[in-house]
């Protein structure tokens, strides 16, 4: 058993970018094995929340705390958070010209292993693992020889994110709009990748504007984020209700926060 109650606890988190407050007191706890979904209209602060958990520079946390595996991580460098098991699937995966995908993935897996006192993965073992995950994500074998995300289609980029999730096997997966821009086939593949990852030891936070990915990955909890605040929380039926009634429905009820 772990020596912490919740994998991650976000406590009264206030975040600003350039003097503008974007997150206005977020409270959210995710236990091991739980799948949470954050839904909300564009600009409500969903990506900000995911990025701040991962430690992206450029945001100031003005008050509150993020406690991960029992410790505050606000002052911890992003690579250390990553090695501790926090993984962010990016809304907009970045292109790295000249950096081969293979080399990038090997460097990432070794950095995380070494951070956890393990040896670098032998090339043969790595290739085997990569091939297995590549097939899982139904990715073109040629892609791992190309520069990271360069010239990848939107769908290939998102699949590449989930390929990394599968390879790096973190404790907490933050999936930022992983479904956006995917056709139905790609959505199926990506969701399958996430469902394979899902287990009693893993926690997932799905950030999404639309409800449709939740048809494939069933959340235990759904939170609605509007203007930097969680205005409603509930079980997966909340997502259906939202889909039916639109965000205006919850905006009207803003203020009456409900916790699971």
């Amino acid at each position: 058993m772990s020596n912490f109650e919740k994998l991650i606890e976000i406590k009264n988190l206030h975040v600003s970018v350039a003097e503008t407050e974007i997150l206005k007191g977020i409270n959210l706890s995710i236990g091991e094995g739980e799948v949470h979904a954050i839904m909300g209209p564009n600009g409500s602060g969903k990506s900000t929340l995911a990025n701040v958990i991962a430690g992206r520079p450029g945001y100031s946390v003005t008050s509150g705390d993020i406690v991960y595996k029992g410790d505050s991580i606000l002052k911890v460098a992003p690579e250390i958070r990553a090695r501790a098991g926090i993984f962010l699937a990016f809304q907009y995966p970045v292109e790295l010209p000249g950096v081969r995908t293979w080399q990038f993935l090997k460097a990432a897996i070794d950095a995380i292993r070494k951070g956890n006192g393990q040896e670098e993965l032998k090339i043969r073992d790595f290739d085997k693992l990569l091939e297995e995950k590549r097939q899982l994500m139904e990715m073109d074998p040629d892609l791992v020889r190309r520069s990271v995300n360069e010239g990848f289609s939107g769908g290939e980029k998102k699949r590449n994110e989930i390929l990394q999730l599968a390879l790096l096997d973190p404790s907490l997966a933050l999936l930022d709009e992983t479904d956006s821009g995917l056709d139905i086939d790609a959505l199926r593949i990506v969701s399958h990748g996430v469902n394979i990852f899902k287990s009693p030891e893993k926690s997932i936070l799905i950030v999404t504007h639309y409800q449709r990915i939740l048809d494939y990955i069933t959340p235990d909890y759904v939170h609605v984020l509007v203007d930097g605040k969680i205005v409603r929380s509930g079980d997966s039926s909340l997502a259906m209700e939202l889909e039916e009634k639109g965000y205006d429905w919850v905006k009207d009820g803003a203020g009456e926060e409900v916790h699971p």
Partner: peptide, 28 residues
């Protein structure tokens, strides 16, 4: 670019190595 550096760091690679990887890629 900071986004590239953060992308690599988010995958566990430290800042110096991330910087090196990007520049090495530029020279590839």
């Amino acid at each position: 670019n900071d986004d590239q550096l953060f992308y690599l760091q988010q995958r566990g690679i430290d800042l110096e190595e991330s910087n090196y990887m990007i520049i090495n890629g530029f020279c590839r």
